[in-house]
């Protein structure tokens, strides 16, 4: 699908498997949110084919039991002067599995590209499993590109600090997990959808 010159494609996908291939013409903007609370497979392919495009991809998966989510992103800067930003988060409890494949390509002629990819994962159980495979191919030299991936557990010192103020351990976990997820939801432009999802995570975090 083409996103025409100067157009905006913006969509929040909640609890579905998304397979999307977008070709961006000059000056177009894409903003996608993938929110998953159960098993799904997502594949997002974006090609910035014209100058001055902007791409934002946000993904949040919060999984329990034996659910699993794979999210692939393929972002290609074929023309210079574009921007892309990706924030991908997984919260995995029980035996849930997450997989992120992030393929970012900046071709040789795509000078003055700005591209950021961040993947942060929170494991709430010893049996949860996360696999992260970033693939960066950068052939242009005048670019700003950053990439970061980390997988960790809840901060024990923060949990204890909250307990020391009388907050139960369970409630403290809930506050920390919500804070972790909120960063993704806060970037949703539509306030009605955003508030609804913020309410949802308040309800599902145990």
């Amino acid at each position: 699908m083409k996103v025409s010159r100067g157009d905006i494609f913006e969509q929040v996908f909640v609890d579905e498997s998304v397979n999307l291939h977008l070709i961006q013409e000059a000056g177009s903007r894409v903003k996608i949110h993938l929110i998953n609370f159960s098993s799904a497979t997502n594949s997002i392919t974006i090609e910035q084919a014209g100058e001055g495009c902007e791409t934002e991809i946000y993904a949040l998966a919060y999984l329990h039991g034996e659910e699993s989510v794979t999210t692939e992103t393929h972002v290609k800067h074929a023309v210079g002067g574009g921007k892309s930003n990706q924030l991908i988060k997984f919260v995995l409890d029980d035996k849930a599995r997450g997989r992120f494949i992030g393929d970012l390509k900046i071709v040789q002629d795509a000078q003055q590209t700005e591209a950021h990819q961040t993947n942060r994962n929170l494991l709430l159980s010893d049996e949860a499993e996360m696999r992260t495979q970033p693939q960066l191919e950068i052939y242009a030299d005048d670019v700003q590109a950053t990439h970061g991936a980390s997988t960790g557990q809840l901060d024990e010192s923060a949990l204890f600090y909250m307990q020391q103020r009388g907050i139960s351990k369970q409630k403290a976990r809930q506050l920390l997990v919500n804070a972790f997820m909120k960063e993704v939801l806060d970037s949703i432009s539509d306030s009605a959808i955003r508030d609804q999802l913020l309410n949802t995570i308040d309800g599902v975090v145990e």
């Binding site: 923060a158 204890f160 600090y161 919500n178 972790f180």
Partner: peptide, 8 residues
């Protein structure tokens, strides 16, 4: 050493 709690 008071603990920082981002997002809360």
């Amino acid at each position: 050493y008071p603990v920082e709690i981002p997002g809360v």
